[in-house]
């Protein structure tokens, strides 16, 4: 479409050189934006490739046993990711078990119970928790939470739950204050705002008509919530939970301070452990030897694969919900 394309003139001057220049600018601009967009793809591809390349020596040396062994000995150059994977999974699981009900509760409160005046400030306050950098959670966890857990919560847990037949094994051992449980609690606080915010957004998309129908039939607030809102928002909720899980799996600084840096798998939640990201953060700059560095990058590759899968699945679910939401 070649027209004058110029600024203000009422006289239509069709200057072929001017028009041609405009076309060139258009091509340049379009190419620039396209390259920037493709760069995003390249970054992800680059991350995957560089991780693969860095991890290759360890992967080829250890093979599949890398993922199944617990040993982590930099001196004899024997590395296995099992302790790190275990720690990552367990701390994230604890975080989810604590944060999901709490996040659900907060979303419920904000959508149903909260007086309209307080809705905005409380909502903002909860989301501000998400803005706090993770290193702050780490130092708060180490200096404030861990001593409290060591002196009060953990002895209580050991005394009351330590002797139960099955669950008891989870709460054995001396109260160190730091460890897998503490890391899980700190992660839960970190992930809580995300889950609360996502669930709240999802609950807000429920058509008021559906809820009103429920109330019209005489249902209580909770019944409407549980039987109308939740089924409607199921996909979004799961998406939000998985997004939170993705964050918890990859969190580094909050965990590094309170996990205890022990490459061991213990049955007790009160024991120190390690996660993939805290192992990398703690040991990378001092790793001597190619196999050690490569093993750490292999850990990074594992984390990338795990989080990528979880986050991709979460995004897919949230997108489905978005599309459905617009259709209503």
């Amino acid at each position: 479409m070649e027209n004058s394309g110029s600024e203000t003139d009422t006289v239509a001057i069709i200057d072929p050189r001017h028009a041609a220049k405009q076309l060139i600018y258009e091509r340049i601009f379009r190419a620039a934006t396209l390259s920037a967009a493709i760069l995003v793809l390249l970054i992800l591809g680059g991350v995957a490739l560089s991780l693969l390349r860095g991890a290759w020596p360890a992967v080829s040396h250890f093979g599949f046993s890398f993922v199944t062994r617990e040993i982590w000995n930099p001196v004899t150059d024997q590395f296995g990711a099992l302790a790190a994977i275990y720690g990552t999974v367990v701390t994230s699981l604890i975080a989810m078990l604590l944060a999901v009900p709490a996040g659900f509760g907060i979303a419920l409160f904000l959508t149903e119970l909260c007086p309209p005046l307080l809705k905005r400030p409380i909502g903002v306050a909860v989301e501000l928790l998400a803005a706090v950098p993770s290193i702050i959670f780490g130092i708060w966890g180490l200096f404030v939470l861990a001593p409290v857990l060591q002196r009060h919560a953990q002895p209580w847990l050991i005394a009351h739950l330590g002797h139960l037949p099955l669950l008891g094994g989870l709460f054995k051992g001396p109260p160190f204050g730091i460890g897998v449980l503490t890391a899980g609690v700190v992660l839960a606080i970190m992930v809580l705002p995300f889950i609360a915010a996502t669930m709240r957004e999802v609950f807000d998309t429920v058509p008021p008509m559906l809820k009103e129908s429920g109330y019209g039939l005489g249902a209580t607030t909770w019944e409407v919530m549980w039987n109308v809102v939740v089924p409607h928002s199921r996909v979004g909720m799961v998406g939000g939970i998985m997004l939170g899980l993705g964050r918890a799996l990859g969190e580094t600084m909050a965990v590094t301070f309170v996990i205890g840096n022990a490459h061991r798998i213990s049955s007790s939640l009160l024991a120190p452990g390690t996660t993939i990201s805290s192992a990398i953060a703690n040991e990378f700059t001092e790793a001597v030897g190619d196999l050690y560095t490569s093993s750490l990058i292999a850990l990074g590759l594992l984390l990338f694969l795990i989080t990528f899968t979880v986050i991709a699945a979460a995004q897919a679910m949230l997108r489905r919900l978005e599309r459905r939401g617009f259709a209503v």
Partner: peptide, 15 residues
């Protein structure tokens, strides 16, 4: 054994 880094069977690690 003795080395700059060993497998401690118990305890907390710190940098």
């Amino acid at each position: 054994g003795a080395n700059t880094s060993v497998q401690w069977p118990t305890g907390i690690g710190a940098k």
